[in-house]
């Protein structure tokens, strides 16, 4: 087994276990910490796939900014343990098999679209440079639109969370 395979198995295992733990834990802060573990192991997988810039962005924006927001809100609202409520029988017996079926179907269809023949693994030395060039030439318009989106999101968050007079 190559080092790549070993690293993939390690980080994929960590990601899946942390995702299961996210669902298993009843306290939101434990779920949030599990989600951070998922995100960091995904960043490691991005590095394995040759996307260095995205790995850095994943850690800085996702594991940093977004998860800090989650943890901050959990602290602010003093969120306690989840209450256990009755799940309907249909959900209890059909839910998990249907979720497994969905996962299998997704995996099967997407696997078919990943051509194994093209796996020459030619990672470009200057991928970050090419990515930036693409972002500022072909994708300029969407890129500028995201700044407006962020602005609207800031306004929306302030207006929503503001206390009524």
């Amino acid at each position: 087994m190559s080092a790549e395979t070993v690293l993939f198995i390690v980080f994929a295992g960590i990601a899946v276990m942390a995702a299961v733990n996210l669902i298993w834990q009843r306290h939101p802060i434990h779920s949030a910490l599990s989600l951070i573990v998922v995100m960091v192991s995904l960043a490691a997988l991005y590095l394995l796939l040759g996307a260095e810039l995205l790995a850095a962005v994943q850690i800085i924006v996702y594991a940093g900014a977004i998860m800090v927001l989650f943890v901050f809100v959990i602290m602010l609202l003093n969120a306690g343990e989840e209450e256990r409520t009755e799940v309907s029988h249909a959900a209890k017996f059909l839910g998990v098999p249907l979720a497994v079926a969905l996962t299998g179907l997704l995996a099967w269809r997407m696997w078919a679209f990943a051509p194994a023949a093209a796996a020459s693994a030619v990672t470009d030395q200057n991928q970050t440079k090419m990515l930036s060039r693409l972002l500022f030439t072909d994708f300029t318009f969407p890129f500028e639109m995201t700044s407006i989106l962020i602005l609207i999101a800031i306004l929306g968050a302030v207006v929503l969370a503001k206390r009524e007079q």
Binding site: A15, L22, L48, L49, A99, L106
Partner: peptide
């Protein structure tokens, strides 16, 4: 064993876990 194809399967598994959650 192909890395990208395995990552796609892992992605489907994580998506399924997200749906369950």
């Amino acid at each position: 064993m192909d890395l990208a194809a395995d990552c796609v399967v892992l992605s489907a598994i994580l998506f399924g876990l997200g749906v369950v959650g």
